[in-house]
Amino acid sequence: EAHFQVQLEQLRSMGFLNREANLQALIATGGDVDAAVEKLRQS
């Protein structure tokens, strides 16, 4: 989780407030914030 701290903060600042969902999306996308946003929008 600490590995994705910067990305988690970016997602939070973009309005994605579900930390667990954000973390799962980042893990699934290897930390790619843009891909994580797409994944979160689809769910």
Rank of each mutant, 00 (worst) to 15 (best):
L17V: 10
A21C: 12
N22C: 14
M14A: 06
R41V: 08
G30A: 12
L40V: 10
Q24G: 11
E38D: 11
E1F: 03
A21K: 15
S43K: 15
L8F: 10
A35L: 11
Q10Y: 03
V6P: 12
D34R: 06
D34H: 09
L40Q: 04
R12T: 12
G31E: 02
L17D: 11
V37E: 09
R19K: 14
L17E: 14
E1K: 12
L40C: 05
V33Y: 15
R12E: 11
L26I: 14
L17T: 15
D32F: 08
E20R: 04
H3A: 09
K39A: 11
Q10V: 03
L23H: 13
D34S: 07
L17G: 10
Q10C: 04
G30R: 10
S13C: 13
A35Y: 11
V37S: 11
L23G: 04
H3W: 02
Q10W: 02
Q10M: 07
T29I: 02
Q24K: 14
E20F: 03
G30D: 09
E38P: 10
Q5Y: 13
G30I: 03
E20P: 08
L26G: 00
A36F: 00
F4P: 01
L8A: 06
A28Y: 05
R12I: 11
Q10A: 07
N22P: 00
R12L: 07
A35Q: 13
L8M: 12
V33I: 11
A21M: 11
R19A: 12
E38M: 13
G31K: 03
V33H: 15
D32P: 01
A25N: 06
L23E: 09
T29D: 04
G31Y: 13
D32L: 09
I27P: 00
R12A: 06
G31D: 01
Q42E: 15
N18S: 09
M14N: 08
N18D: 12
N22H: 00
F4S: 01
V33C: 12
A35K: 15
E1N: 01
R41D: 14
E20M: 09
A28K: 10
Q5D: 10
L23F: 08
N18W: 02
A25I: 07
Q10D: 12
Q10K: 13
E1A: 03
E38F: 08
L40Y: 03
D34C: 08
I27E: 13
V37R: 11
Q24H: 06
Q10T: 07
L23I: 12
Q24M: 04
R41Q: 15
S13T: 11
V6R: 08
V37M: 09
L11W: 00
L11K: 01
G31R: 02
Q42M: 07
Q5R: 05
R41G: 12
L26H: 01
A36L: 01
L23Q: 12
M14D: 05
L8W: 01
Q24Y: 02
V33P: 08
A28F: 06
S13H: 02
T29W: 03
R12Q: 07
N22Y: 00
A36R: 00
F16W: 13
E20V: 05
Q7L: 06
Q24S: 08
L40T: 02
A21Q: 14
G31S: 04
F16M: 14
I27Q: 11
R12H: 15
A28C: 03
V6L: 05
H3N: 14
A35P: 10
L8G: 05
Q42T: 10
L11V: 09
Q7V: 03
R19M: 15
G31W: 03
E9D: 04
D32W: 02
L26R: 00
H3I: 00
E1V: 04
R19S: 08
L17M: 08
F16S: 03
G31F: 02
S43P: 13
V6S: 15
V33T: 10
V37Q: 11
K39I: 06
Q7S: 05
A21P: 11
L8V: 09
N22W: 00
K39S: 11
S43C: 14
G31I: 02
T29P: 00
G15R: 06
N18F: 05
M14V: 05
Q7P: 11
H3E: 13
G15T: 04
H3R: 12
E38H: 15
R12C: 12
G15P: 00
A36H: 00
A28I: 05
Q24D: 15
G15I: 02
Q7D: 04
L8T: 09
E38Y: 05
A35I: 10
A36P: 00
L8R: 04
L11M: 12
Q5S: 10
T29V: 14
